[in-house]
């Protein structure tokens, strides 16, 4: 096991983030809070990918001024980079849809507005 961090604590943090996000998504009815929950879910997934690729005592996988030693895994970092940009783009799209729903129906409650019922 690692010396500094016992018991897979980063994975527990990931589980806490994803659990909080799912709780927000299924319990809240305000659309802004739903978007916040999805954003927290994206953060949890990013943290999961980064912790998945960490290697004990590793350095960044860039050879230019690399100190001697092992390197962390590059593929999860690349996927995280892709995931961050996708999360930002989807967040912008969701927020603009929320703005439109608010302008059309006058509320951000997903159960009061008629077009969101179902």
């Amino acid at each position: 096991m690692t010396q500094g961090i016992p018991f897979n604590v980063p994975f527990l943090a990931v589980a806490a983030l994803i659990g909080i996000a799912f709780y927000i998504i299924v319990s809240q009815r305000n659309l802004i809070k739903l978007v916040m929950g999805l954003s927290i879910l994206a953060s949890g997934v990013n943290l999961f990918l980064i912790t998945l690729g960490y290697r004990e005592g590793g350095v960044a996988p860039i050879y230019t001024h690399a100190p001697a030693g092992i390197m962390v895994l590059p593929v999860p970092q690349a996927l995280t980079l892709t995931s961050i940009v996708i999360a930002v783009a989807c967040l912008a799209l969701m927020l603009s849809m929320v703005v439109h729903i608010y302008r059309h129906t006058g509320s951000t409650d997903s159960e009061k507005s008629r077009i969101m019922k179902g």
Partner: peptide, 12 residues
């Protein structure tokens, strides 16, 4: 193609 390993100053 740069030489393998750490290579500061080499054009990659």
């Amino acid at each position: 193609i740069p030489p393998s390993g750490p290579n500061p100053g080499e054009m990659s």
